[in-house]
Design a protein around this nucleic acid. Sequence first.
DNA 1: TGTATAGTATACCGATTGGTATAATTTTGC
DNA 2: GCAAAATTATACCAATCGGTATACTATACA
Lengths: 196, 196
Amino acid sequence: MTKAEKTRQFIIEKTAPLFNRKGYAGTSLSDITEATGLTKGSIYGNFAGKDEVALAAFDHNFGLVGSIVKKRMAERPKAADKLKVYLDIYSEFMKLPALNGGCPVLNTSVEADDTHDALKQKASNAIDAWYKAIQSVIKEGREKKEIRQKFDEKEFAGAFIALIEGGVMLAKVTGKTGGLKAAMKQAEKMIDEIAK
Amino acid sequence: MTKAEKTRQFIIEKTAPLFNRKGYAGTSLSDITEATGLTKGSIYGNFAGKDEVALAAFDHNFGLVGSIVKKRMAERPKAADKLKVYLDIYSEFMKLPALNGGCPVLNTSVEADDTHDALKQKASNAIDAWYKAIQSVIKEGREKKEIRQKFDEKEFAGAFIALIEGGVMLAKVTGKTGGLKAAMKQAEKMIDEIAK
DNA sequence: TGTATAGTATACCGATTGGTATAATTTTGC
DNA sequence: GCAAAATTATACCAATCGGTATACTATACA
């Protein structure tokens, strides 16, 4: 790992929470230099511009959540319990550093959908990956006869993700956990319904 | 209605879609002058600053959606059908001018929660109002014996709103309606479950 | 209709925006 | 330990940011 690669990683790690909290338009280059302690020259020596930093920061944020999910899923053998990992994580998302400014998928989607194609694409891909992760758990669960055969798994994933992201939004903006908990409870009900 | 009041209204109407699409940080004063055809002097003669325009724009956007909901609800006598008004509207939210850039509640919540207290408060209040509107329909439905007694109406509202907003986010960022439809179907199921 | 006032436009302000050219400094391979 | 290359800092750029002072113009009321 060369020096520049380390610096690049350092910049990403320091700015990722920033982008997640303040958004792409709300994060300035001086925010970036301030957070890293580096100068513009150094930033631009490692990235083509603000865009590239933001894109890398999103990947970092999404990757963090993904690795936590993966790790916790591995600890649970049953498909239904694997799906409930999402509920455990997002029920207390404020406690997770990676989700401090809210869910990066939600934040990026909402900001970028009408303003920033590259970021929008990243967010869209992230959702695709999320869909696939859920469907994969369902498929495995079906093979083990833990999950019912007779329901549309794509439909399940869509409503499931919507509940989680909607719940996160409610918690962040109201400052209360009522809405999030209600959404999580509903999502849990959905899981219990597809589990035999 | 004085001239200035007309101009003020004109500015709000022209910039409200802008703020909903590009967000607070993403909308500049030149965006505002461009959209209205007016000059900065005129904007600042009617508003104290960008903040005040944004706040008024949010009220306008939220009010538009609210009035559509109210109108359509009035056409339906049954409580369950009143609740389904939200599903009808958000299922095809792209067709509604007021929801062109997505749901203003969602957009504003996600952007402002960590960056703009006044806007955050407005979004939070909007959600409060939404909660109350749902609870009011439920209460009325219960009095008419159309809605079951034995469930937590706040919990219902929280999950219901989360589903809708999550679904809108999915539709906007993926460009496909699958996720939104799945969320709406789940929300409809929720309504059917509380209706006798 | 004249005049006070309300409303709008012009021209400017300092600060900050994202970005770059170049100089100074580290790393790196030999 | 030295030279070449890679990396970081400095100093600057034009453009734009939100905002203001002031001059002009339209409106409203006597």
